Amino acid sequence: MASQGTKRSYEQMETDGERQNATEIRASVGKMIDGIGRFYIQMCTELKLSDYEGRLIQNSLTIERMVLSAFDERRNKYLEEHPSAGKDPKKTGGPIYKRVDRKWMRELVLYDKEEIRRIWRQANNGDDATAGLTHMMIWHSNLNDTTYQRTRALVRTGMDPRMCSLMQGSTLPRRSGAAGAAVKGVGTMVMELIRMIKRGINDRNFWRGENGRKTRSAYERMCNILKGKFQTAAQRAMMDQVRESRNPGNAEIEDLIFLARSALILRGSVAHKSCLPACVYGPAVASGYDFEKEGYSLVGIDPFKLLQNSQVYSLIRPNENPAHKSQLVWMACNSAAFEDLRVLSFIRGTKVSPRGKLSTRGVQIASNENMDAMESSTLELRSRYWAIRTRSGGNTNQQRASAGQISVQPAFSVQRNLPFDKPTIMAAFTGNTEGRTSDMRAEIIRMMEGAKPEEMSFQGRGVFELSDERAANPIVPSFDMSNEGSYFFGDNAEEYDN
């Protein structure tokens, strides 16, 4: 993207840094990872977990959730003011799984939030270390993106479920800051804005008074975040219109849905970061690795190297396929839920299948599930090659597409044709070009129609051997075009429920 120079890199967003050079960025990201790792080690000690239990991804998720809940100030305040039966607002906890007599047992633990905050700050040299908290939120978000298709949420806001490739980060909490905003897809931002506008339509006082002023500035800020994701002048001009509207209503909703559809071809720039579970960072720190000293990046080879040398386990339900569970977590670790499966298959070195073909449910185990038949197995999170994460949407291309997802959002900077089903997408653009945004709409449609099938995206960008740390010898991959490109292809993934 041309304006790259004016933006802070995501590592800076990730670490609240002012302008830093590459070495400083690597050190501050490393410091953040160190903090998460030290916190995780301490929690495993508190909970008396064995090494194996500490490497269980379900335990990692519970521990991450506990610290996120302990620092969720708004919710904590709300819980104190609106006490609900049987919930102690000062405590947080969740299921911890232990191996007892050759069987997995679930144990519900409860801790004072104050105590968890103390352990977290102690692991982070006394700081609140917001960057580390956001990092864990993005890992949870990436896992949700890989596990669930947001059909219901899309339909509720009037969008087409086939636009799911635009929904990265749709389950990120509001408090995820600049680093969170960077990884949100165009569809996620559109959905947040539509929800806001709908509230304004239904509630006369939404934009009024002292609160209304705050609401208005939040609305304009979200519009600017979305505008910054678009790469064409016409899309940005249309966002200006939406932002400046005196009284946002149905016309703005129409414009936003139009823009979301246009992003299936004229893709937005959305950041991709490899955020790993805390149970990967903990053992690495415990083994003596100093992330701050060595430096770390979320968008280069580092996460690949770390996963190459990590042992992570997962509980497996009786009829689940461990290899499929591994694929789910591998995609989440690489922030690749909406990437082209052919690119992923090449990088991973084994075939990556669409969601609907995987015999696996989510990673988390519900409290009512029976533990008797639970097994555990090693997650295979290694890769054959590594590639640089991208934040450009890439230019655009036609490809055989599917009944489910009709476009992709690249996660890796790797040369390819970008699949999208042009006739299906263009069919949504018939007729409606009147109104105050008509010239911009016409211009956007013209650009979409001009998108050429034979153009290559990320020209000359390749993948790298894991021994090639400096990215000196790019390998331009070859793809098996007979395979499906979309992950949520004609899909039956479970729906995400809060």
Rank of each mutant, 00 (worst) to 15 (best):
E252K: 06
A131F: 00
Q122E: 04
S367F: 11
L143T: 05
G431T: 07
E465Y: 00
R117F: 07
L79A: 09
E449C: 06
T147H: 11
L298E: 04
N309A: 14
R38K: 12
T378D: 08
I253V: 07
M159R: 04
R400V: 02
V476N: 01
E73V: 15
G282F: 10
P303F: 03
M447Q: 14
R441F: 05
Y281V: 11
K293E: 14
I257H: 01
Q415G: 11
V329L: 14
E449T: 14
R470Y: 00
V312T: 13
W330K: 10
D340M: 08
P453H: 11
S84E: 01
N247Y: 06
L56A: 10
N432E: 00
V67R: 05
K91R: 15
L256E: 08
P173L: 06
G462R: 15
V476H: 00
E53H: 06
L259V: 15
G490P: 01
E64K: 05
R99G: 12
R174N: 13
S367D: 07
C164L: 03
R348T: 12
A411G: 02
I41E: 13
R221C: 06
C44T: 10
T45Y: 01
E46A: 03
N250M: 13
D255W: 07
V67W: 05
R461I: 00
Q235M: 05
E469K: 13
E294I: 02
V183N: 02
E244K: 10
N144G: 13
P322F: 09
I444D: 04
F346M: 15
R391N: 05
I445R: 09
A278G: 14
M105R: 08
T15H: 12
N211D: 12
M440A: 14
G460V: 00
L166Q: 15
L328I: 13
L259I: 13
V109K: 12
S3I: 10
R199M: 14
V186G: 00
R461A: 14
E80T: 13
M105D: 12
I36A: 12
R65Q: 09
A178F: 00
N397F: 14
E469S: 10
G86W: 02
F71E: 05
R267F: 03
E11V: 13
A284C: 00
E465Q: 01
R382E: 09
I116L: 06
T147C: 14
A251M: 08
A251I: 14
G185C: 07
T15A: 00
N224Y: 09
S176M: 01
T232V: 12
L307P: 00
G404E: 02
R389P: 01
D497M: 13
E115P: 03
S383H: 02
E454N: 02
W386H: 14
K77R: 15
I347G: 05
M374Y: 10
H82W: 14
L68Y: 07
F458I: 10
A323R: 13
G200T: 13
R216E: 06
D421M: 12
G30Q: 15
L256C: 12
G200I: 08
F258Q: 11
T62R: 08
M239V: 15
G394K: 05
R246E: 04
Y148T: 11
K87L: 01
L315I: 14
E81N: 12
L307N: 01
Q308M: 09
R162K: 12
V414M: 15
Y111W: 07
Y296I: 06
T424C: 08
H324F: 04
F429N: 00
K87P: 07
V270R: 09
Q149Y: 06
M189A: 06
T15Y: 02
G126H: 04
Q327R: 02
I194N: 02
Y385E: 02
M13I: 12
R243T: 02
E292C: 04
V363P: 01
Q405K: 15
T45L: 15
Y52M: 08
K452Y: 12
G485Q: 04
P303K: 08
A403K: 13
C333K: 01
A2H: 00
A451T: 01
A323I: 13
E107D: 15
M456W: 14
L193I: 06
K452M: 07
E11T: 06
S359E: 00
L47G: 13
N473A: 00
G86F: 01
N224A: 09
L61E: 01
L276P: 10
V312A: 08
A263L: 04
G30M: 08
R391Y: 06
I194M: 11
D160R: 03
M66I: 12
P95H: 12
A387Y: 05
G393V: 08
K325C: 03
R261I: 07
F346Q: 09
N417M: 04
S314W: 05
I388G: 07
L259W: 05
L298A: 02
E107P: 06
A442M: 14
M448C: 01
A451Q: 03
V329T: 04
R267C: 04
M66F: 14
I316H: 09
P410L: 01
A366S: 14
Y496R: 06
R156A: 08
M191H: 10
G212H: 10
Y40C: 01
C275G: 12
D203P: 06
D145T: 12
W330P: 03
N142G: 10
W330S: 09
I33F: 04
T62L: 04
T130Y: 03
E11Q: 09
P410D: 00
N142V: 06
M32T: 10
I425Y: 02
V242C: 14
E115D: 14
E339F: 02
R416T: 10
R174K: 07
P89F: 13
M371C: 13
R261V: 04
K357T: 06
A442S: 15
M163T: 15
E244V: 14
K7H: 01
L344T: 14
T378C: 05
I96W: 07
A284L: 11
M196L: 09
M481F: 05
G295A: 04
L143E: 02
E53L: 04
D51L: 13
E24C: 07
D468I: 01
L315E: 05
A131R: 00
D439Y: 00
A233L: 02
V280I: 15
L110P: 13
P89Q: 01
F338C: 12
R65M: 05
N417Y: 09
Y487P: 03
C275K: 05
F429P: 04
E494Q: 12
A427F: 01
K103S: 10
A260M: 12
E220I: 04
R213Q: 10
F304A: 09
E107R: 04
K293H: 15
N76A: 09
K48S: 09
E484R: 00
K198H: 07
R361M: 04
G93Y: 03
L166G: 01
S269L: 03
A471H: 02
I33D: 02
L298M: 12
A428T: 15
R216H: 13
R361C: 02
A427C: 14
A182K: 01
K98C: 10
R400A: 06
P423D: 08
A401E: 09
C333A: 14
A123T: 11
R213K: 09
K103M: 11
I301C: 08
L341C: 12
K273Y: 05
E254R: 05
R348H: 08
R74C: 02
A85K: 06
T45Q: 02
H272K: 04
A218E: 04
L108D: 01
A153G: 09
M137V: 09
P283E: 02
E454R: 00
S165R: 00
V408F: 09
R243C: 03
V186I: 15
F39Q: 04
N142I: 05
K293T: 06
A234G: 11
C223V: 13
D160H: 04
R199F: 07
R152Y: 09
V186N: 10
S245V: 04
R195I: 05
A218F: 13
G180R: 03
Y289S: 11
Q459I: 02
H324S: 13
V109A: 09
Y289F: 12
K7R: 00
G126Q: 10
L381R: 01
R117I: 11
E434P: 12
S269M: 09
V352F: 07
S326M: 10
R243H: 01
P477F: 00
M448I: 15
G209P: 03
D88P: 03
K357A: 08
M456E: 00
P318Y: 11
K293D: 04
S376R: 02
R216T: 14
R102K: 13
L264P: 07
N59T: 13
